[in-house]
Amino acid sequence: MKIVVLIKQVPDTTDVKIDPETNTLIREGVDSVINPFDMYAIEEAIRIKEHLGEGEIVVISMGPPQAEVALREAISMGCDEGILVSDRKFAGSDTWATSYTLSRAIKKIGDFKIILCGKQASDGDTAQVGPGVSVHLNIPQVTYVKKIEKLDKDKATVERMTEEGYDIVETPIPVLLTVVKEINEPRLPSLKGKMRAKKAEIPVWTAEDLACEEDKVGLDGSPTRVVKIFTPPPREGGRLLEGEPDEISKELAGLLKDTIIG
């Protein structure tokens, strides 16, 4: 069974600091990591393979050349192969163009059974690419999966997280699943995995390799366009309450009284 995992390299948000004066990101020293939600997708793919006792995991990342690092990390955890989808022509892709491009790469791989993605990327937060890919590939999707209950050759039963609890959904295979944090705890890499990752050849697929239609990739293929970027006015810091804890508590309760009752 071929399992495809779609991953994105993002800035390590646990690292991100804001310059208090300019209110902009301090980029220096911020590492790039695999989107945290994609780590669950990688782990789930490895678990599926372990569970089945067979299979091949192909990880795909679309991004700049340095995204290769993310693919090697996925291999060091136990994925079999990494493919970098990278071309200057892809720059400026919005979620439409990204999902189109990724679907071209998956089609080129062919013969896939399960496609796994994180529920969203921590830098963009759109949660649009996974569902988009499923449309381009014309396969069913289940989003926000928190558990794979059962997995057979041609169908799977999964739990989809909702605001109130979860749905139990049966889906035919092939299917695209986006996963949430609850689904597992990602493992650390192994030494053998790291060795394999170091030596692994990471093919780079370009727009030409994927036979992409030009008007569907990159800036030109993206329906949306950024017209303005601005820094929001920072929320003003308020008042510090000072004194003994019991005095402060009384004061605060008084201040909030109307809001809470009203």
Partner: peptide
């Protein structure tokens, strides 16, 4: 188990 999984 972590040690084992990581080939330590």
């Amino acid at each position: 188990k972590v040690f084992a999984d990581s080939d330590i």
